[in-house]
Simulated assay, not measured.
Amino acid sequence: MKKALIATACAAALGLSALHAKASTIVETAVQAGQFSTLVKAIEAAGLVDTLKGEGPFTVFAPSDEAFAKLPEDKLNALLADKEALTKVLTYHVVPGKVMSSDVQAGEVQTKAGQAITLRTEGGVQVNDSRVVNADITASNGVIHVIDSVLLPN
């Protein structure tokens, strides 16, 4: 009986410590996911790591590595080499607030780049011409929705 109580107390303590563990930020969550190595590399090159680890909340429409692979290699390399253009592209994927997929409403939404994206909800969530392929990956400072192509601002 005493051993069972001790085991229960230990299990409860472990459970509580897990609840109090700090949740991962957008950047940490992207690194841990394993499907955003190009995005993480771009965030680092643009100097946006601290911003996306910041308080937020942010909603990030995050292109997967497969989405980045759709860009011609020379265009991707040129983008990674141009910090100003890269920052504009990356911030075009970020909207203020934590918007879960069930809360998305069709219409235009301003991005951190200062340009609007168009959200559609028929047949699943779409952002401009891109589809959300995995939604609601939560982070301590927002949410990530995986998209199937890179959004390019005007």
Results as ranks from 00 to 15, higher is better:
residue 16 L to Q: 05
residue 16 L to R: 08
residue 18 A to Q: 15
residue 18 A to M: 13
residue 19 L to T: 07
residue 19 L to C: 03
residue 19 L to R: 00
residue 20 H to D: 11
residue 20 H to W: 14
residue 21 A to S: 06
residue 22 K to A: 12
residue 22 K to T: 13
residue 22 K to E: 14
residue 22 K to M: 12
residue 23 A to P: 11
residue 23 A to N: 13
residue 23 A to C: 08
residue 24 S to T: 14
residue 24 S to P: 09
residue 25 T to C: 15
residue 26 I to E: 08
residue 26 I to P: 02
residue 26 I to A: 05
residue 27 V to W: 01
residue 27 V to K: 00
residue 28 E to G: 05
residue 28 E to V: 00
residue 28 E to T: 05
residue 29 T to M: 00
residue 29 T to Y: 01
residue 29 T to D: 02
residue 29 T to I: 03
residue 30 A to R: 11
residue 30 A to H: 09
residue 31 V to D: 01
residue 31 V to A: 01
residue 31 V to R: 05
residue 32 Q to A: 13
residue 32 Q to N: 12
residue 32 Q to P: 04
residue 33 A to F: 06
residue 33 A to K: 04
residue 33 A to L: 09
residue 33 A to S: 12
residue 33 A to M: 09
residue 33 A to I: 08
residue 34 G to L: 13
residue 34 G to N: 09
residue 34 G to H: 09
residue 34 G to Y: 10
residue 35 Q to R: 13
residue 35 Q to Y: 13
residue 36 F to S: 15
residue 37 S to Q: 02
residue 38 T to V: 11
residue 38 T to M: 12
residue 39 L to C: 05
residue 39 L to A: 05
residue 39 L to Q: 05
residue 39 L to P: 10
residue 40 V to N: 06
residue 40 V to C: 05
residue 40 V to S: 06
residue 40 V to W: 01
residue 40 V to A: 07
residue 40 V to K: 05
residue 41 K to D: 09
residue 41 K to C: 12
residue 42 A to W: 09
residue 42 A to M: 07
residue 42 A to R: 04
residue 42 A to G: 00
residue 42 A to C: 00
residue 42 A to T: 06
residue 42 A to N: 08
residue 42 A to F: 04
residue 43 I to P: 10
residue 44 E to G: 07
residue 44 E to P: 14
residue 45 A to Y: 07
residue 45 A to I: 12
residue 46 A to M: 08
residue 46 A to V: 08
residue 46 A to S: 14
residue 46 A to Q: 13
residue 46 A to H: 14
residue 46 A to F: 11
residue 47 G to V: 03
residue 47 G to M: 04
residue 47 G to F: 06
residue 47 G to P: 07
residue 47 G to W: 03
residue 48 L to Q: 08
residue 48 L to G: 07
residue 49 V to P: 14
residue 49 V to I: 11
residue 50 D to S: 15
residue 50 D to L: 13
residue 51 T to I: 10
residue 51 T to N: 04
residue 51 T to M: 08
residue 51 T to R: 13
residue 51 T to D: 04
residue 52 L to A: 06
residue 52 L to Q: 06
residue 52 L to R: 05
residue 52 L to I: 02
residue 53 K to H: 15
residue 53 K to G: 15
residue 53 K to T: 14
residue 53 K to C: 15
residue 54 G to N: 07
residue 54 G to Y: 03
residue 54 G to H: 03
residue 55 E to H: 06
residue 55 E to M: 05
residue 55 E to S: 08
residue 56 G to I: 00
residue 56 G to L: 00
residue 57 P to T: 11
residue 57 P to V: 03
residue 57 P to E: 13
residue 58 F to R: 00
residue 58 F to D: 03
residue 59 T to L: 09
residue 60 V to Q: 07
residue 60 V to I: 09
residue 60 V to A: 04
residue 61 F to I: 01
residue 61 F to V: 02
residue 61 F to G: 02
residue 61 F to Q: 00
residue 61 F to T: 00
residue 61 F to L: 01
residue 62 A to M: 09
